[in-house]
Write a protein that binds this DNA or RNA. Structure first.
Lengths: 330, 330
DNA sequence: ATGAAAGCGCTAACAT
DNA sequence: ATGTTAGCGCTTTCAT
């Protein structure tokens, strides 16, 4: 910038004014400076401006995975708000999450979106206490009072359940994520609630745990060995759905199935997969909006936004065959 | 940091030394400073250090899409090299690419990974000329001499083709991306080469163009109307594969199919999908390695790394039924 | 309307 | 082994 000032034969501050489109600079000055900028191929240093200004104009995100589905929407929303989004993945590892958050804080992001691992990073709590605007996405932050954007997990599970019941199913089981995770817990609980309401016994129909091929296979095998045999299944997240399809094939061993969260290939497999689709776009957008509003006004009360989910009926959820099917003598 | 110095009762530079683990500081100093840091919850400002040091320790990436498959590997590789990775998506839009690259340059990233849109951003060329280390990923940079990491597209198509031929197919067609894109062009060309080698006529067997549902459907319908009817198909990228499966169903209307690039559900659908899998991990890793080595030594000659691909045989590629099948009277 | 100068938070000489 | 001081590239008073 000094070079530009020198070449243009003006003061440093004038160059700065031109770069920042200050309306008080004269038109000839503007041209002289812009020429100098062009000849020097000058590019302002964003870090220096941020340092001086005290604001970074940057939002940070610590998400579970690079492919986290809200990121696309969040990036777009940030862009629309003229903020940059910097993000890193945590692989659902508390240590890594801590590292990522620290790194982002040292970059002095103006606010942080975090998809929290189950285990609470105490570091994050401290930053929030120090005034860092934070919004949790997908799962709320345990033990800390922070904004959050979550899916309507209960509504989704209930819709899936009702759909199966409406098709005549009674012997339904649930296979999903570990209840250590908020979403896993909420969905499993919602299922229990549903099952109880029709007189079923949740104790033998909820399989929650790690999403690994081995565990899911074992759970499926166990569930299918029960007599009377279950006729329907609700899977609690995409990883579970995929492993289930891998193990049982797209026909799911004759079970009716509703999967939590949509899959790219849900309409390709035969039979097509009926799903509860989360609105990732809306989640990402909402997270950025919440974050920006909190940056503007840190004293806002804590908000929790629940994003609706949608039942997408694809394959017919086949009726159970022949026999009677109450889960218990209801 | 001044605050820390004040609380610890030492000089600013001593705090800096402690923060940077300078070995010349005495042990009691270290403790005093660390205590002050802890009580003040001090967090160094990364931007200020970068500004002063002249290096950002950050790599930038401008990729097509948030879900770009190399990003995960690139992030990990960067992390291993103790560098941060900042990235944004370009949606294959030249304007957006330009914006993203400019933004990254203003952040003074030490180097840039870019998955170039077809249209050349002149801005990027200027930056490279000015000495910005850049490596292109997936597709080389048109008209600019820069490092690149690409898949072995020719080898992949050839493997797919040979596999089909070995199963008795002769009437094979190719459906893929627009030839404006490097990968689309290379794959289509490779297919032409293959087809010619068995005496087939590429003119009627290559369908390259935009990856939209409409175009792909039309291309499939046209291809399948030809007599003698084709017996096999090679799809040129995942988007094309998905639209093809959507249109024709997982049985692909009786065609044998080999798809370029693996799909998460390739082993789930029936019949399972045989694919040419790209090694996205290796690509991301290689890009970061190339970039870092070029940052270290800007005078390195330009390198192009080709990452091998792998044929994953899943479903049997059914033999064509009954009749004879030469593409022409070879 | 423009220039001079202070300072954002830090590192790296240079002193002692 | 520790302190003093001069910037890194910019914005922003405060003068003029």
């Amino acid at each position: 910038m000094v070079d530009v000032a020198h070449v243009a034969g003006v003061a440093l501050s004038t160059v700065s004014r031109v770069v920042n489109a200050d309306p008080t600079v004269g038109p000839d000055m503007i041209r002289r400076v812009e020429n100098a900028i062009a000849t020097l191929q000058y590019e302002p240093d964003e870090r220096a401006r941020q340092l001086r200004r005290g604001l970074s104009g940057t939002l940070g995100a610590a998400v579970r995975d690079v492919g986290s589905p809200f990121i696309g929407a969040a990036e777009k929303a940030a862009r629309d708000a003229k903020m940059m989004l910097m993000w890193s993945s945590t692989n659902d590892d508390a240590r890594l999450e801590s590292e990522v958050v620290i790194s982002l804080c040292r970059q002095r992001v103006d606010g942080l979106i975090v998809e929290p691992t189950g285990d609470q990073s105490s570091y994050l709590g401290r930053q929030i206490a120090k005034g860092l605007p934070v919004v949790a996405i997908d799962r709320p932050l345990a033990g800390v009072d922070a904004d959050a954007v979550v899916s309507d997990n209960v509504g989704g599970i209930t819709a899936a359940f009702d759909h199966l019941v409406a098709s005549g199913h009674r012997r339904i089981f649930y296979l999903g994520d570990h209840e250590r995770l908020f979403t896993g817990r909420q969905r499993a609980d919602a299922f229990r609630e549903c099952l109880s309401s029709i007189g079923g016994d949740p104790a033998t129909a909820v399989y929650a745990g790690e999403v690994t091929a081995e565990r899911i296979r074992a759970a499926l095998d166990n569930a299918l060995r029960r007599r009377p045999r279950p006729t329907a299944l609700i899977t609690g997240n995409d990883g579970t759905t995929i492993e289930t399809l891998r193990h049982l094939g797209p026909e799911v061993a004759g079970l009716a199935i509703v999967a939590f969260d949509d899959l790219e290939f849900a309409d390709i497999i035969r039979p097509p997969l009926t799903v509860i689709a989360q609105d990732h776009q809306a989640m990402g957008r909402a997270a950025v909006e919440l974050l920006i509003s909190r940056i503007r006004d840190p004293h806002l009360p804590t908000r929790r936004v629940t994003i609706p989910v949608r039942l997408i009926e694809r394959g017919a959820v086949n009726r159970p065959s022949r026999r009677r099917q109450p889960a218990t003598r209801a």
